[in-house]
Amino acid sequence: MKIKKDDEVVVIAGKDKGATGKVVKALPREQRVVVEGVNLIKKHKRANPAGGQQGEVVTMEAPIHVSNVAIVEDGKATRVGYRFEEDGTKVRVSRRTGKDIS
Rank of each mutant, 00 (worst) to 15 (best):
K17M: 11
G88E: 13
R32Y: 05
K90N: 11
K15H: 06
V91P: 05
T59M: 06
D74Q: 15
V58W: 02
A47S: 04
V91F: 01
R96N: 06
L40S: 12
G37V: 08
I12R: 13
V66L: 12
Q53P: 01
Q54N: 05
K22R: 14
G55K: 13
V58C: 02
I71C: 09
R32F: 00
S67Y: 02
D16K: 14
D74K: 15
I71Y: 04
T89Y: 00
T78F: 03
R46H: 09
A70F: 01
S67F: 01
V10L: 03
A77E: 14
E86G: 13
K45V: 09
V57H: 01
E56R: 14
S67D: 13
G14Y: 06
R29W: 00
M1F: 05
P63W: 02
F84Y: 15
T20A: 04
H44T: 09
P49Y: 08
A47N: 06
H44K: 15
H44N: 10
V57Y: 00
K42Y: 04
E8S: 12
A47D: 02
V80I: 15
T97S: 15
R92Y: 04
I3S: 07
H44Q: 10
V72K: 13
K15A: 07
A62P: 02
V24D: 11
V34W: 02
G81H: 12
D87R: 12
E36G: 12
L27Q: 08
V10K: 14
N68S: 14
L40Q: 14
K90Y: 00
K42H: 09
G18R: 11
D100A: 05
V38N: 10
V58I: 09
R32H: 09
K4I: 07
V80E: 03
G51V: 04
A26C: 08
P63Y: 01
V93W: 03
D6A: 09
G18D: 04
Q54E: 10
R29F: 00
E61A: 13
R96Y: 01
L40D: 05
A13F: 06
